[in-house]
Design a protein around this nucleic acid. Structure first.
Length: 286
DNA sequence: AACGGAACCTGAAAGC
DNA sequence: TGCTTTCAGGTTCCGT
């Protein structure tokens, strides 16, 4: 389930597992994940030491000595997992990095929507996918910039926020969660948002992302969302269920072919004038 | 240039 | 129970 918070957790895990480690062997299967590249390209990482893991939006950039790099996107179902090298790999492994401490890193991705791109770090940063990313949604949002971008599109605010050039890292879930927290209907025309509404939206985006990350906090970077069965989201996946903030029922609409969840009472469709309930902080608080 | 829709994949869940 | 259909959190490409 990789959107910004999940990718951030992946970045923390990769740092904990591998920064400072030397790659003993690297291999990849010939799949769509490495589209356009020979599997042996990944093998060139052998002998190099991982120096840093950087996240921008939903992308990860692993950099090694010698300015070598590996760009990673988890797509819809990709994940990095860590195991003892002696242990048998799990299913759907598309690439493996064997480390110098008898452990191995597997890139697993059943659907193969994810991507691994090998190259020099500079070249990877120059790829359109990385270069065109907007500012990271977790970095503190520039409200002026966001307002300017929303004002110049005819799309709905939901679809506009899905555009990684506007803000990097939001996906279908967190856009729905942020719009709910901000009391904004997803179908609102992006350009119809007032200054105050954009400010509220910017705050709500930060709240939604930080709340998701707070559930992952701990001494070790553990991907709790992988085990957590229950749905901690305020609206996502809760069609027909009660809204936590009012007596309304959560509904599902489809925008651009994808589901969006919302509470029609907390998120009125019209340009809202009435006073909005205070932002809720995840769980039950308030 | 901006937009909507289709394409790309597999697996799990829901429906019959 | 077993077969079929639907749906899934992303990006990219293509036609308008």
């Amino acid at each position: 389930m990789p959107e910004l918070p999940e990718v951030e957790v992946a970045a923390r895990q990769l740092r904990a597992w591998c920064v400072g480690r030397r790659i003993v062997e690297a291999r990849a299967a010939r799949t769509r994940v490495i589209r356009g590249q020979q599997p042996r390209r990944l093998g060139e990482l052998a002998g190099h030491t991982l120096l840093d893991v950087e996240r921008a939006g939903k992308w990860l950039l692993l950099s090694f000595d010698g300015a070598e790099g590996l760009l990673s996107h988890l797509g819809m179902a990709g994940r990095w997992t860590h195991r003892a090298t002696a242990q048998a790999p799990a299913s759907h492994v598309r690439a493996t990095l064997v480390l110098d401490d008898a452990s191995s890193l597997d890139y697993r991705d059943p659907r193969m929507f994810g991507r691994l791109v090998r190259g020099q770090v500079d070249a990877l940063r120059g790829l359109p996918a990385w270069r065109t990313l907007g500012p990271d949604a977790l970095d503190g949002i520039d409200v002026d910039r966001l307002q300017r971008l929303l004002a110049r599109t005819r799309r709905s605010v939901k679809e506009a926020l899905m555009d990684q050039r506007v803000l990097a890292g939001l996906g279908n879930i967190y856009v729905a969660e942020a719009l709910h927290r901000g009391g904004l209907h997803p179908a609102r025309a992006a350009h119809s948002l007032s200054r105050g509404e954009v400010e509220r939206l910017a705050a709500a985006i930060g709240d939604a992302l930080r709340f998701a990350l707070s559930l992952e906090e701990g001494p070790q970077p553990v991907a709790h969302f992988e085990e957590r069965g229950d749905n901690e989201f305020l609206v996502y996946g809760h069609e027909g269920g009660p809204c936590r903030g009012c007596a309304g029922r959560i509904e599902r609409i489809v925008q651009g072919g994808r589901s969006t969840f919302l509470c029609p009472r907390c998120q009125p469709a019209g340009r809202a004038r009435r006073k909005r309930p205070a932002l809720r902080q995840g769980r039950q608080k308030r």
